[in-house]
Nucleic acid binder design. Structure first.
Lengths: 105, 105
DNA sequence: TCCTTATATTAGAATTATCGAACATTCTAA
DNA sequence: TTAGAATGTTCGATAATTCTAATATAAGGA
């Protein structure tokens, strides 16, 4: 596979992580699976909107669903996702300490 | 600082990485600084467009410029950025091997 | 100063992402 | 099989991103 395509796919993963709600979901799934209802109750988000975000993350292979009766439980597909997020979080915190201007937008 | 704000800043960093050209630039800077001209010549990109991407990355604290005469040399601000990118790349490759559908868009 | 090279900025069009609202689906229990 | 709870999908408005083209700025040399 060409490098260009790899960069595209890589960018696609980053794009999936580039949303505060989705990052919060990932953080919530850090220690194991949670049902949609559990996630909704832990966040300030509508069920429909969460479902949209979960769809995006599912399609990109970030999370994996498991249906159990009426509930659907989601988990992270790969523990390295948390590692990557934590690394970026470290970069962020180090920059904040260094006074780098990082305001969103 | 509130978690919500942290997630916003974190998303902002991911957003900055969520572009194939910018990822390619980061990869090019992996082993040390390069001038804008060097980067342009190593990629398929216009100078103006590269300058725009460098501006974004500069503002988000991903890269740091150093002017030397008429040239501006850019370097990564933090080696953890490469580590995070490499981790995500690993996740991507493992997913590809597992046959996960990751097509962009 | 004037010219040239290197880099940055702006404007505008096209594409893409986000969210609320409304609606659809799936499953279980009664 | 109908009701209700849990989850998913579609649509449309708004906002953000990306690129090209044109222009601007900065630095050095003749």
């Amino acid at each position: 596979m060409a490098d260009r395509q790899l960069y595209e796919l890589h960018a696609s993963i980053c794009q999936t992580l580039a949303n505060p709600k989705r990052l919060e979901v990932i953080d919530l799934l850090r220690d194991g699976e949670k049902s949609v209802t559990e996630i909704v109750e832990a966040m300030e988000i509508s069920q429909a909107n969460l479902s949209q975000h979960l769809t995006v993350m599912r399609q990109k292979g970030i999370v994996v669903p498991r249906r159990e009766g009426v509930n659907v439980y989601y988990r992270l597909s790969n523990p390295k996702i948390i590692k990557a997020c934590d690394l970026m979080r470290q970069v962020l915190l180090e920059h904040l300490q260094a006074g780098v201007e990082l305001a969103r937008g």
